[in-house]
Amino acid sequence: MKESNPVLRAVQVLFRDYLVLLMIAVLVAVTAIIEPKFMSPLNLVNIMRQFGPLMMVSLGMTFVIIGGFIDLSVAGIINLVAVVTISLIQPIGQVPALLTGLGIGAACGLLNSAVILSSGALTQAEALFLTFGMSTVFSATALLYSHGSTMHFWDIKTSKSIFETIGAGTLGPVSVSFVIFLAVLFLLWVFQTKTTEGRAISLTGGNKTAARLSGIGISRAIVVIYTICGLMTGLGAIVLFSRITTAAPVIGAGYETNAILSVVVGGTTLKGGKGSVLRTVMGVLLVVLMSNCLNLLGVSTYLQVAVKGAILVLAIWLDNRKQV
């Protein structure tokens, strides 16, 4: 590479690695100018609440993608955790219900990893189809469990204060779900950057053979990434149904593509090995802000789906060019 002046280099790096931040800034600026309602406190609080579920799921998905795999089963896990948890609040109380929900999420993730490990699947493609099948199984279980009906908060006679707090409570100026998000983000960030296991995941995603030969337990890494993803998806499901106060067995539809979109847009590469939870936070912010902006600008929900697909294609393409 030729020696160029430092300002140019910095701009290059900015465009290559932080394109998302740039896009967020442009998006916010443009919308704020066109539609002043965007900067109103009500809308900002709204955004803060909206990104909770997607954020949790995407943070979990980040580890799977850094590990070089993919998880399409998050939609099924959300369906299952939501209907089971909400139905258990009355019979066994809220704290056990909450813990059961998280436990089911983690168990589903563990089951995914067991299927992948036992079959010896090593590529993203194989994991994609296996987890798609698992998603169908989880969703069907949710449908069978709930008999396809929607459950509401107002049907629950006993106390459900914890879930109401998660869904609508505030702590000072920020919402409770935002505080949960900050705490989880800190934990996951520490796990990813400061622990051996976290680095083992990155190495596994970078090059599986090299990782195995240097004595890293790939199998353990696979179990860890899928369990984290399942656990975070369970948490996401709880935050989701607490916010909308109902749980239907189809509540999670579309979350898998949105989570992959957020992770990839954030700059974590689908090839595995490189990425971080902080990047995913940016990605989720972009996706949620984009939905919000498009809503305010009056773009139909259907066209928004198309826009999301286009951005996913574009993001993968750009990511690929960066590597070449």
């Binding site: 090839k271 066209l303 789906v305 198309a306 999301k308 697909g309 996913l312 294609v313 993968i316 393409w317």
Partner: peptide, 20 residues
Amino acid sequence: TEPFIITLGMGLLLTGVAQE
């Protein structure tokens, strides 16, 4: 590019177009 996710994205895009 890896075909799996990018064609999945293309499918999402087209589904949106179909709905619109």
